[in-house]
Nucleic acid binder design. Structure first.
Lengths: 222, 222
DNA sequence: CAGTTATTTGGTCGAACGAACAAAGTAATA
DNA sequence: TATTACTTTGTTCGTTCGACCAAATAACTG
């Protein structure tokens, strides 16, 4: 699912104008918008800043996406596809006839690594989910609700067997996301506190800790 | 520290105007602003909406706080004082010559209960900490940095004795805050997923789970 | 080449924003 | 009552916002 398009900004420092083609411009706009939405939230984001960062004009957002809302949805489609890929890849790495506990561990490590590499999704979710909106309803219905159901179902099975931590289904999703993502979503705060959330050591030890906490029955397999 | 001032909006539905006094107006404005900032972030918040919700005029924000920034700081001063009170109270309840583990447990339960009762602080922190700003620097320097140092120091002592979960100091703070607060900070999302984060059962079981995860050596004491 | 579509550019619109100021009203004091 | 300080009101300023449209340019098709 990873695309090879560059996020490059300015169309050409030279003299003449060049049409970059719909796909290229859309990609650049979405990349810039992800940055802007994750840093300032939907309401605080400026379509003019997004266009400038993408080397485009504000009007092109209307032309290519018909407005701020649809641009935002495209951003979340891409980010959700990325986290799906990341988790799928993490699961692929687990030894083939993998037990359920190994799946849980792979998911946890995948979540931590994805959140550290790509904190924008966590940031946008944390911005959006603080108040009800049509965007939030769309997000849960089309992008995140199903995944939560899958995760909780798997978890409840292991929980009944006493193989994982005693976290109820209601709280599991947000507890796991919060524990694995906040350090990276709020990286600017962590940096001010003297932490480097981009350090591989910090990230891997963080993942180890979460595995130990959520799967107390497992010995570390890293 | 709890104040007895009402958050009441309209100054008087009747005919004549009444001066409510500086303290009352400031309190009402801060209460309304906490609501607005937590729902929409600093940039997305509107001083006109805040004033209206407080039954005041926008100009009174300039008069009483000299602007949006200072109003925001007052909001965070109040919220941080509230969480300090909540934790102090939780610690007070622990049996007098309380061991360090009991302190940790009390803090965890206090964090969960506070986050569920007063999710606005978590929401504002999550809005602010997604990108660097003068506000964020002020926050860490004057309001939250010291508390983190205290918590991490206590934790590292217990960690060296193997009494608590193997979470490194770098990640502990955000892991604990994320695990205990996200469910309530993002309550609108949870509700769309069929969860009721205001349910006392959900809250207490959530706290139990976190205690079990962070203090694997302890038997439940609830 | 002409004809047609795809894309970019530049500008405008009304609305909302935070800040600011002067005038009016209220409360307290002498 | 006269004076003074405190608080509220109404309005305006300049800026930025998202949306929108018409004209210009580029790329493609016959």
């Amino acid at each position: 699912m990873s695309e090879a398009l560059s996020d490059g900004a300015a169309p050409a420092p030279g003299r003449t104008r060049r049409n970059r083609g719909s796909e290229v411009v859309r990609h650049a706009l979405v990349s810039a918008a992800i940055e802007e939405f994750s840093a300032h939230g939907f309401e605080g984001a400026s379509t003019r800043r997004i266009a400038e960062a993408a080397g485009a004009h504000q009007s092109q957002i209307k032309y290519h996406f018909d407005g701020k809302d649809e641009l935002w949805k495209q951003c979340l489609r891409r980010l959700v596809a990325e986290v799906d890929d990341a988790i799928a890849e993490a699961l692929g790495k687990a030894d083939s006839p993998t037990g359920d506990l190994a799946v849980v561990e792979a998911v946890i490590r995948g979540l931590v690594r994805f959140a550290s590499r790509r904190p924008e999704l966590s940031r946008i979710m944390m911005h959006e989910a603080t108040s009800p909106s049509e965007r939030l309803a769309w997000l849960v219905e089309h992008e995140t609700g199903e995944r939560r159901r899958t995760i909780v179902t798997l978890w409840e099975g292991l929980r009944a067997k006493g193989l994982v931590a005693p976290v109820d289904g209601e709280a599991l999703y947000h507890t796991a996301i919060g524990a694995s993502s906040l350090l990276y979503a709020n990286a600017p705060e962590a940096v001010l506190m003297g932490i480097d959330p981009s350090s591989p050591d910090v990230i891997e030890r963080h993942a180890d800790a979460l595995v130990a906490m959520f799967i107390p029955s497992a010995r570390p397999t890293r």
